[in-house]
Amino acid sequence: MAMEGIFTGIAASMRELLAGAPPWLENLSMGFLYLVGVLAFIFLNALYLIYLERKISAYMQQRIGPNRLGPHGLLQSVADAVKLLGKEDIIPRGADKWVFLIAPILIFIPATMLYAVIPFGKGMIAADLNIGVFYFLAVASTTTIAILMGGWSSNNKYTLLGSMRSVAQMVSYEIPLTFSVLGVVMLAGSLQTSQIVMAQEKVWYVLLQPVAFIIFFIAATAEVNRAPFDLVEGEQELIAGPYTEYTGMRFALFYSSEYANLVSVSALAVTLFLGGWHGPWLPSWLWFVIKLYIMIFIFMWVRWTFPRIRIDHLLSFNWKVLLPLSLANILVTGVGIKIYQLLTLGRW
């Protein structure tokens, strides 16, 4: 199919073009191409998701939402981005200047790196690492450092409280997140994201691992600071959490990195549980995007439905409910696999 090959075709023709060049040049230019592709994907998604979030919340709340700029208000996010670019970049007097300046840039690095192991379609993966899932989880957890830097360096008590919450929350929710993924890894027998997708050709893992999927979803919501786990920002208590002192484009970077993270965990959920790019008729990358947006919609739905949880409830829920549940899930999965092997292969 012609549509199927659109993106892989670009990469192939680029390779052809560089056929005679030395290998390092080819690697460098291909890497650059992937980076451009991922960045374009992130920024377009972030812009569009902000619009989508506003529209979805509006319809849930009997409002219309942005509808002035462009058809159905589609250009609203662009206008917001332009406005933020034009804003004064304020650095608080008491701030730790360099840390303050670097934090918003740093937060974008893991957000971009995550996309390297996401298989967007058949053969569309930037770096098919054999420890892809592990890489994803490891890189995702470094986001905390950037948030902590931003919160600490702002020299404001609200940002400090926000970043403290961020550390407590992310460190604890990392564990059930990892354990829930472990069930899938055991079934697929691989940490490589492309292999996991391949293994789901017949049946999606959400059917074999429903508990793991729910745990993953909850932990991922906490991981990306979405309501009801948005304690880090906690607008009603902490104004904007670690981002309180940021203005203009630096604020926008934080803001869009949240959407980038939202997309990346949704993409991971699709890859691990919803069969990745598998699907009939349509091109594989389109299937991926459709599933991705269904996941994102669920995230948004949850956000506009639930109030915010309290910090001590948040932590005790993690340690007392999610963690034992995810451990039990691993146990059940392991026993299940063995029984299956016994039944089909007649051996342990």
């Binding site: 919340s57 849930m60 709340q61 009997q62 409002r63 309501a227 009801p228 948005d230 906690g234 607008e235 009603q236 506009w304 439905t305 639930f306 109030p307 915010r308």
Partner: peptide, 9 residues
Amino acid sequence: DVSGWTAWF
């Protein structure tokens, strides 16, 4: 104040 945005309306 408990972030139940939709119930505001």
